[in-house]
């Protein structure tokens, strides 16, 4: 709960977010971040809270298709926007190619950073700026892995990146 300063709290503001294909109409206080809303209001805890300051990337989501840190975004500023979390990337029973590649390449240990890593990697692949392993390392630098699974993460992303570029 935020501290109160004596004056009445601003009224909650109604917003609608489309999250993983479903529309959610909710009321939020101005200071609720997208991360707060996902986890505490809509109870989608698949997006992880790490540093809460934009330094670790654990909270990465796709906002209108672009990867962002949900901890540094106010929900009230995103009325009508489309959000995809790790829970929304699989096609029914079929895992997303990056989920499959992370399993195949053993690209995780504790797994806490993985939702953010995979959402970030989806953004990286769709942006199309990475051409090499070096580029992947540079363009994944916003996602930390304290277990140090970086080499396998790059392997997984590289495989999907190469297969996407050969099919398009």
């Amino acid at each position: 709960m935020p501290e109160t300063s004596g004056s009445p709290l601003p009224e909650p503001i109604p917003i609608t977010l489309k999250i993983n294909g479903s529309s959610h109409s909710i009321e939020v206080r101005p200071w609720s971040t997208l991360l707060d809303v996902l986890r505490d209001h809509i109870h989608l805890t698949d997006t992880k809270i790490g540093c809460d300051h934009g330094q670790c990337g654990a909270c990465t989501i796709l906002l209108n298709g672009q990867r962002i840190n949900s901890c540094l975004s106010l929900a009230v500023m995103h009325n009508g926007d489309e959000i995809t979390t790790i829970g929304g990337i699989a096609d029914c029973e079929n895992l997303h190619p990056l989920q499959q590649a992370f399993i195949k390449h053993d690209a995780l240990q504790c797994g806490y950073c993985t939702p953010g890593q995979i959402c970030s990697a989806i953004g990286l692949v769709s942006e199309g700026h990475a051409k090499s392993r070096e580029d992947i390392r540079e363009l994944m630098s916003g996602n930390l892995c304290r277990c140090g699974a970086y080499t396998n993460i790059v392997d997984a992303i590289e495989e999907v990146m190469r297969s996407e570029s050969s099919t398009t």
């Binding site: 990465t60 906002l63 672009q66 990867r67 962002i68 990286l124």
Partner: peptide, 9 residues
């Protein structure tokens, strides 16, 4: 500067 996520915002 920053990271891709931050530069997107």
């Amino acid at each position: 500067g920053a990271s891709p996520q931050l530069r997107n915002k």
